[in-house]
């Protein structure tokens, strides 16, 4: 049990990294990764919302299945996430002002982040149990953070580089993302061997 959870957690971070391997949440990855501080703040908010959203949508799916209306999944999940994010922001503002100051600006941006909706849907698709889903969401969030923080370092170097004129800006960022992504391909197979899961 513990081995399976650890396997899910680490494979979400390294092998199935949401940003670099599964292409979920590319917009914030390219948009917010310029500064280390904002990259870190955004990732914290994503981890928080992902875990919370999974904790709410997983029981919700069981409820939908109970009434045999599983096809409403997409609508219900996106509305839950939208409401949840708003709710968290209001509560945070009232009771945890310092936390709100740190994460508040990133929260609205997360509502339409495909990584959050993606993790909730993939958890259901993979048939994970409740605990596995939570661990998977946490792993996905930390994977997002790893990619963001690493890439903000790469971008810092990019600022001093002088690419050809037409590559300046986004194109060179995308090309360096490709190289970062190649480095993550090296992790394939490692996790399975560590935890002895075929």
């Amino acid at each position: 049990m513990a081995a399976k959870l650890a396997y899910i957690f680490f494979s979400m971070i390294l092998v199935n990294n949401y940003v670099l391997v599964k292409f979920l949440g590319i917009c914030p990855f390219l948009g917010v990764s310029k500064k280390l501080n904002s990259a870190f703040g955004m990732s914290c908010a994503v981890i928080f919302v992902m875990t919370l959203a999974t904790a709410v949508t997983w029981p919700m799916q069981q409820l939908l299945n109970l009434f045999d209306i599983g096809y409403l999944q997409t609508i219900v999940f996106i509305l839950i996430i939208a409401v949840l994010v708003q709710l968290v922001e209001v509560i945070m503002k009232k009771y945890m002002p310092p936390l709100h100051q740190a994460l508040g600006v990133y929260l609205p941006l997360i509502t339409t982040n495909c990584a959050v909706l993606g993790v909730t849907i993939l958890n259901i698709d993979n048939g994970y149990t409740f605990v596995e889903s939570i661990v998977c969401a946490l792993g996905a969030g930390f994977g997002f953070m790893l990619a963001m923080v690493m890439f903000s370092g790469v971008r810092k170097r990019l600022e001093d580089a002088k690419p050809p004129k037409c590559f300046e800006g986004l194109p060179i960022t995308l090309v360096s993302a490709a190289i970062t992504s190649i480095s993550f391909m090296g992790f394939g197979g490692i996790i399975e061997n560590i935890f002895n899961i075929a």
Binding site: V175, A178, S181, I182
Partner: peptide
């Protein structure tokens, strides 16, 4: 593979 996606898009 995924890196190819980034590369093609960038180029």
């Amino acid at each position: 593979t995924p890196p190819g996606g980034f590369l093609t898009f960038g180029v």
